[in-house]
Nucleic acid binder design. Sequence first.
RNA 1: GCUCCGAUAGUGUAGCACGGCCAAUCAUGCAGGACUCUCACUCCUGCGACUGGGGUUCAAAUCCCCAUCGGAGCACCA
Length: 462
Amino acid sequence: MRFAPNPNGPPTLGSTRGIVVNSEYVKEYNGTFIIRFDDTDPVTKRPMLEAYDWYMEDCKWIGAEPDQVVIASDRLPVYYEYAELLIAGGHAYVCTCTQEEFKKLKDTKQACPHRDIAPEENLREWKRMLAGEYEERTVVLRIKTDIKHKDPALRDWGAFRIIKTPHPRPEVGDKYVVWPLLDFEGAIEDHLQGITHIIRGKDLMDSESRQKYIYDYLGWTYPHTFHWGRVKMHGFGKFSTSALSTSIKSGEYSGWDDPRLPTLRALRRRGIRSEALRKFFIDMGVGETDISLSLDNLYAENRKLIDADANRYFFVWDPVRLEIPGFEPTVARPSLHPSEDRGFREIPVTSSVFVCSRDIKDARKGDVFRLKDLCNIRIIDGNTAEFIGYDIETIKKGKGRIIHWAPVDGIPVSVMTPEGEITGIGEAGIIKELDAIVQFERYGYARIDSVDKQVIAYFTHK
RNA sequence: GCUCCGAUAGUGUAGCACGGCCAAUCAUGCAGGACUCUCACUCCUGCGACUGGGGUUCAAAUCCCCAUCGGAGCACCA
């Protein structure tokens, strides 16, 4: 099996599906997993140098280390060789029609004048192409199919064109001016690498019919193919790699791992486990239906994985200070985890704490609350309350709500979420959790990304 | 305009190649409940679908036709 991305950005949720499902089949049937960089367009979908490594990194992280790596831009001579074979066999021709001219003829099922030129002449023209004698957009090498084919998409498709912009990879640079199009490059590589099964997007459904002409001319057997539909993610708008790239450069996003982006590295930074991603995509299977899915399933999967590990902490967002006059300073000792026996945090408390404004803003005089793992209080007015005891049982019997809180000398915490940044105060112990996933009680899970004068956490999910 | 593909609960998915075992699977979601010093976790209960119409057949989610809806291709992009 192979996964064939164009490295013009980091892997996204969509690419991840390709990586996971292909590699899963490989595991199940003991096959070979090849990652092939289809980087044969130095202009329109110009590859990013860093992205090659990003793909390798992300594949590894998600448990899909490739057995082989192929970089198409390294293999132009191979493609040239087969092109010549096809030209010599009279199966391909050099066409100097303009795009518009050819389209017009093709749409009316008419051959262009170049179609009947003799192979020898085509070979000579091909050499001129390779020698750089043609300018961009003046010539193209076409594969001869059936100009009268009922499906216009299959009529004499283009296989090579001229591009004089250097390739971003320094090893390649301006070495070549004749570049293959996807259907040609992919057709040759799939055969050369002995690919037996291809899963490709529904948008590439015609590729098989197009490429089969080459396979027939060369006497090859076409791999088995499957297709999958388009994936739309709820909560993520439409995005294209190139559009994202500009938004990142302009500073609209902090980078390719901005928590608002559906890239693998962003999800990783947020604390999504690779196992959750794998299960999510494997359960989804390979369907031709276009799907529009929510990340709830992924989050649910992830929650099961992280809940037992995630230590609990108090994080108060939208904090308001609540005074409890006369309360004797003490040390609260909430447990690190409600069911795993992992010990306690220790939080020194004085006669005032922070609580979420949401929790007390509608409270009236006399309302009773339990500050979780600390004490019971009764509201006096908007931001003062009186201490009324430590006993949890009295709260359990009554109707007082249990709310969480943070010490007034706590640490500032910023949580980066897909919806934006949430700031508040957390207990100081959070600084011990650098790089770990914690649960902010009554808020959700988050990965502690950095710890300095303040804590930066990346929101995982509820 | 021409061509191709798809359609099962809110979402995703199993079943469809070989029609009966499907009063349709699983997950998530939602609702209710148990547990709990978190709105988390765990557990229990419940809700919810074969796009429509014809046909073939003793029997259709499964086969055929039409319609509707959705997606894609017809690039010197991938």
